[in-house]
Each structure stands twice: as C-alpha cells, then as structure tokens.
C-alpha cells in the first residue's frame, strides 16, 4: 500500500485533472454555438446556390 497523499505522482495527477475539469465543466461558450450555426448556414446557402 502506498502512503496517502505522500505519493507525489498521485498529487500531480489529481491537480492536473482538477485544472482540466475546471475548464471542461464550463460547457460550451455561446460564441462557438453561434459560429457553428453560421458555418452551417453558409454551407446550406452554397448548396442551394449550387442547385440553381
């Protein structure tokens, strides 16, 4: 058995995950949802133009 909290690798792993999760749990900012909608709209429009 490894001693609790004395294992520096486990401490590093936990902190790295905490840092990462703090961003991941913020979800998706509106600017990216807007961007994807715009990209999709442009694509639809160009597809329609192509058919005309």
């Amino acid at each position: 058995m490894r001693p609790k909290s004395d294992d520096p690798n486990a401490q590093i792993a936990a902190k790295l995950k905490a840092l990462y999760l703090s961003v991941q749990e913020e979800g998706i900012p509106a600017r990216f949802l807007d961007l994807l909608e715009k990209l999709e709209a442009v694509e639809k429009r160009s597809m329609l133009d192509g058919k005309e």
Partner: peptide, 22 residues
C-alpha cells in the same frame, strides 16, 4: 452526415477547450 458531424464536434468541444486552456 452533416448534422452528425456537428453533433459529434459539439460533444468534443468542452474537452477541446480544456486542452487548449491547459
């Protein structure tokens, strides 16, 4: 396929942001 691509991309975005931020 287009919608599926977008949906999969959205699902990966929180982790992608965390990667960029890290």
């Amino acid at each position: 396929e287009n919608q599926e691509f977008k949906r999969e991309m959205l699902a990966a975005l929180p982790s992608l942001r965390a990667f960029a931020m890290s």
